[in-house]
Each structure stands twice: as structure tokens, then as C-alpha cells.
């Protein structure tokens, strides 16, 4: 073959370059990868899959296994035998209350986030142009990514009895309103930082960007022609909003609610720092595995959010929410 090319004159140099001899291991491997692309794929995907499979799935399996063990009431030791006893404990009134309270808070936070997020997402999607587009993008992205603990800490400062809200209420002569809110049964309290209202505010604040982003994505996909058609047909702004925009934004709302609901359900830092120290699922898991040393019950508690999220995700998928992610 080489002899053939060397006879064909001007082409020979180019041909020589194209059929270089193999220069060692790297070239031989290159040839091997070329002939067997599956091999390269396997080499690339094996390390990450091993990591996720062993570390993550392995741990989830351990969690599931632990939840089917139980604790010996006298010795406090974990009994490594299959039982549903631990799950039955979840239905005790005290534990059932924890689950119910957590779900109620997660639902309230989701609704709160959706209401606050809508004007921001709508403006960013439809009216922000050029410089303002960048302002809104960074303005949503930075709070999303910046330190979770610092955000919670900032709210500890804000909600404190001697903090900025009390000061603002005094400065505007509205202390009576604040006091009236705090005397509300159940959700009120001694101060905002020890009440359910305060906890709700902090949750809503920290998860708000997670609602804005998917909502904005789905609003950006609403065709302008539909809004014009709606106006041409004589709809007022409010009617267009109710009958055209909101239904089309729904997948985004559902996608956002996946985050706000799931994040609230699993959080145990905020209920520990703000609120009346009522128990939530995350806190129960943390306390049971730590001071109480009841790992099986902690594991069973942790399985609750998984089951709820699996159902939630299944429903969201049916509602077409994943296209908005």
C-alpha cells in the first residue's frame, strides 16, 4: 500500500501523514476506542456509576433496611430482624402529628411562594429586556445559591423581638397591628421568631427562588400571539391572566412546588432556630438518630418524605410539570 502511494507522486506526502505508524500506547488505545466505542463508554461511565451506586444507592438501601429493624425497649439495642413494628410507631398520635404538621407547613409555604413568585417571574419573563433581564437573572440566581445558613441567620436578626420588624412597626405606629397578629391562636406567639408565622416567613424566603425559576421558564414559553388573541377577543387584563396565562403557567408552578414542598418537608434547621420548637419530620429524624439513638425509627421517619415525594413526582409528571424544568 505504501509502495502504491509512493508511485503516485504529489499525493504521497499527504498519504504518508494520513497513515502514520502507531506511536505507542496512546495511539493503540485510540485505535481500540475507535473500533470498540462501547469500551470507551464503559470506561467513562463506570467510575461515576460505582460512586453513586455504592455510596448513594448503597446508603439508601441501608436506610430502608434500618427502617425495618426495631429497637429493643429494655436494652436500647437495635434488633436486626425484619419487622413492621417501627413503621407502626409512626402512627402513634405524637408521631402522626409531626408528619401532619410538616405537610401542612410544606403546603402553606408552597402556596406562599407561588403567590410571591408570580409577579417576579411574570415581569422577568415578559417585560424585562436587556439590562433588566440581567438584573433579574442575577437577582434571582444569587439568593438561590448564596449561603442557606446565612439567610436563616439574617431572618433570626429580622424576627427577633428587639429586631428590625418591631422597630419598623414602632416607627410607623403600627405596633398594635403586629401585636394583634402575634396574639392569633396557634400561629401567633411571644415574638415573630418563636411563632409559626415567623417560621412560615423564613421558609417562604429561603425557597422562593426555587419557585420563581421554573415559573419564569414556563411563562417565557407562553406565545405572545395568544395574549394578543385574547385581547382582540375583548378580554380584559384580568380575564387574560385568569383564562390564558395562569393555566399555561401551571406546569411551572407544579415544577416549582416540587422543590418548595420537598425542601420544606426535609428541612430541620429552620424549625430548630425559628418557631415554638414544635417537632417536624426533619427534626424528628435528627433527634432520633442522635440523642435518642433510635436509628430504626429515624430511618422510618426519613422514608416518609421519600414516599410522599415519589407520589408527588408521579402526579407532577402526569400534569406535564417536567417540561418546565
Amino acid at each position: 500500500m505504501m509502495a502504491h502511494h509512493s508511485r503516485s507522486g504529489a499525493n504521497s506526502d499527504a498519504a504518508m501523514i494520513a497513515i502514520l505508524p502507531e506511536r505507542g500506547l496512546a495511539d493503540r488505545l485510540t485505535g481500540l476506542f475507535w473500533r470498540k466505542p462501547k469500551l470507551l463508554l464503559a470506561l467513562m461511565i463506570t467510575p461515576p456509576l460505582l460512586w453513586l451506586g455504592v455510596v448513594y444507592l448503597g446508603s439508601l438501601a441501608a436506610l430502608l433496611l434500618q427502617s425495618f429493624y426495631s429497637i429493643d425497649e429494655f436494652s436500647g439495642m437495635v434488633v436486626q430482624e425484619f419487622t413492621l413494628k417501627t413503621y407502626a410507631e409512626l402512627l402513634r398520635p405524637a408521631n402522626y402529628d409531626v408528619i401532619f404538621r410538616t405537610l401542612l407547613m410544606a403546603a402553606a409555604v408552597t402556596v406562599g411562594c407561588a403567590i410571591l413568585a408570580f409577579p417576579i417571574a411574570y415581569f422577568a419573563a415578559r417585560f424585562a429586556r436587556g439590562r433588566w433581564k440581567a438584573v433579574f437573572y442575577l437577582g434571582i440566581m444569587l439568593p438561590l445559591w448564596s449561603s442557606y445558613l446565612v439567610k436563616v441567620y439574617a431572618w433570626k436578626l429580622i424576627l427577633a423581638k428587639e429586631g428590625i420588624i418591631t422597630w419598623a412597626a414602632e416607627a410607623t405606629q403600627t405596633s398594635a397591628v403586629l401585636d394583634a397578629i402575634l396574639t392569633l391562636p396557634v400561629i401567633g406567639g411571644n415574638s415573630l421568631s418563636t411563632s409559626y408565622i415567623g417560621m412560615f416567613m423564613v421558609f417562604t424566603y429561603v425557597w422562593l427562588p426555587y419557585m420563581i425559576l421554573p415559573m419564569q421558564a414556563s411563562l417565557e414559553r407562553v406565545p405572545a400571539s395568544m395574549l394578543e388573541a385574547s385581547a382582540d377577543l375583548g378580554a380584559t387584563r384580568a380575564q387574560t391572566l385568569r383564562t390564558v396565562i395562569l393555566p399555561l403557567a401551571m406546569p411551572g408552578v407544579i415544577a416549582g412546588s416540587i422543590f418548595t414542598f420537598s425542601l420544606t418537608m426535609g428541612d430541620y434547621i429552620i424549625p430548630q432556630i425559628v418557631g415554638n420548637s414544635a417537632n417536624f419530620i426533619g427534626m424528628a429524624v435528627y433527634q432520633l438518630q442522635g440523642t435518642a439513638g433510635n436509628i430504626p425509627l429515624a430511618a422510618a421517619f426519613a422514608v416518609v418524605p421519600i414516599v410522599i415525594m415519589v407520589i408527588y413526582l408521579w402526579l407532577a409528571k402526569r400534569a406535564g410539570a417536567f417540561d418546565a424544568l
Binding site: L52, Y56, L60, V285, M309
Partner: peptide
């Protein structure tokens, strides 16, 4: 599998690892 560790609440990832280390 890749998105699961952040799709599920952190408390689940944490508790899972804790159980696995324990076992």
C-alpha cells in the same frame, strides 16, 4: 440516579449515609 441526591431532601441523604456508616 445523578439528580436524586439533590432532588430528595438533604435529611434523607444525610440519614442514609449515617445508616450506611453505622452498618
Amino acid at each position: 440516579l445523578i439528580i436524586l441526591p439533590i432532588a430528595l431532601p438533604g435529611v434523607i441523604t444525610g440519614m442514609s449515609l449515617r445508616s450506611a456508616f453505622g452498618m
